[in-house]
Design a protein around this nucleic acid. Structure first.
Lengths: 204, 204
DNA sequence: CAGCGACATTCCAACAGTGACATGTCGAAG
DNA sequence: CTTCGACATGTCACTGTTGGAATGTCGCTG
């Protein structure tokens, strides 16, 4: 239900049309709360009916400029201060980790290293934004920087984790292989039914 | 569309009924990919129709035990290795950060420190899981630990960030206040219309 | 053997999100 | 003055997600 609050939040900074809002969503909120046209226009109508925003001006091409109302501001403040940030987040990339066991260690490693690269790329793009922006002490600037810093730190953590995880797969494989070798040795049957340290070729 | 793959993934480890799957979802995947009964049972029917799973046994109380088919395993492997982890994630807590500017710095700080506490609590609960689990070199164990480590690292990063952000709000406020004071001084009008360093009382 | 709690499935209404399509207007560049 | 791109809104069908309700069965405990 937070699309509503995203729209209210954007309108709290300045009045805007649906079209303007779409640009704002794509510019600054894409990575945090993406929205489509249909959603934004639909939400604006609902918000108008609910009295949380109002049409503040009509422009050319049927442009309707919306402004937040007092009720809208109250609702926004209420959401910020009293509603607990919502629960469970779906995390596609992490879900896969649970099932990497059905792949060969080599494939799993590849997946994790790809994740590391993607995190690194994300980090770079945040860094670029950071460096190409002039930060002052205005509210918007302060909180924009704080949000960006979150992206920077998270992507760095993700990259480190993915690299660590890739190594972990390798070393776990090695540990298990040597364990099996020892077990075979102790059982006095050096006969092998597989490969001790290399990946299975028939499983790709 | 990854609910499908979550179900396939769980079934790849062992056959299970819808009821069993619900327990597994709540036990291990809640924080990564939550699902409701209706979704799981619905998905099982769709997957059966699509031939990716099949009913492997009938039990008491109309229990239907599902097992993954060869096609299902192929699909799962395909998803793991070739489908790019899906796009944009919604992040309620971070969305709010963008709009903290409409609150007083004190309220914003409170919000951020609450986030820090929540991250710390999450970290603790992950830690407990970590310490109360026996990790061996089995696949499931290795990847389970990797996923858990992700949670540990992320929650730690989040806590640090939130604490840093709370301080940032305070120091930005101070910087801005002193800036304003200097501006007033240089304009030769030490007359004040507000408070230089404390929060506005009428804005709560 | 009565009854309760865990097991087990199915259906439904409502809302949220996706992506494409339809429609039309204005302003500037050629 | 034409035409093209940016501006601007709206609608539709489909899928995914939520939460609840209805229904019934088995197995253990008293």
């Amino acid at each position: 239900m937070s699309l509503r609050h995203a729209v209210l939040g954007l309108l709290s900074e300045s009045p805007a049309s649906g079209y303007d809002l779409m640009k704002l969503f794509n510019a600054s909120l894409t990575s945090v709360w993406p929205a489509t046209q249909s959603q934004v226009y639909g939400e604006l109508n609902k918000l108008t009916t609910a009295g949380l925003v109002e049409i503040s001006a009509h422009g050319p091409r049927g442009r309707k400029e919306y402004a937040i109302t007092t009720d809208g501001l109250t609702e926004l403040r209420h959401w910020l201060t009293e509603v607990a940030p919502s629960g469970p987040q779906r995390h596609d990339a992490l879900l896969r980790v649970f099932f990497l066991g059905i792949l060969t260690p080599l494939e799993a490693r590849t997946y994790l290293l790809t994740q590391a690269k993607m995190a690194a790329r994300a980090h770079d793009s945040y860094k670029q934004v950071d460096e190409s922006t002039e930060w002052d002490d205005e509210m918007i600037s302060v909180y924009g920087k704080i949000a960006l810093e979150y992206g920077l730190r998270l992507s760095a953590t993700m990259e480190e984790w993915a690299r660590w995880a890739a190594d972990e797969v390798t070393s776990a494989k090695a540990r298990k292989a040597s364990e099996l070798a020892r077990a075979r040795y102790e059982a006095g049957q050096p006969e092998s039914d597989g490969e001790p340290t290399t990946e299975r070729p028939g499983d790709a």
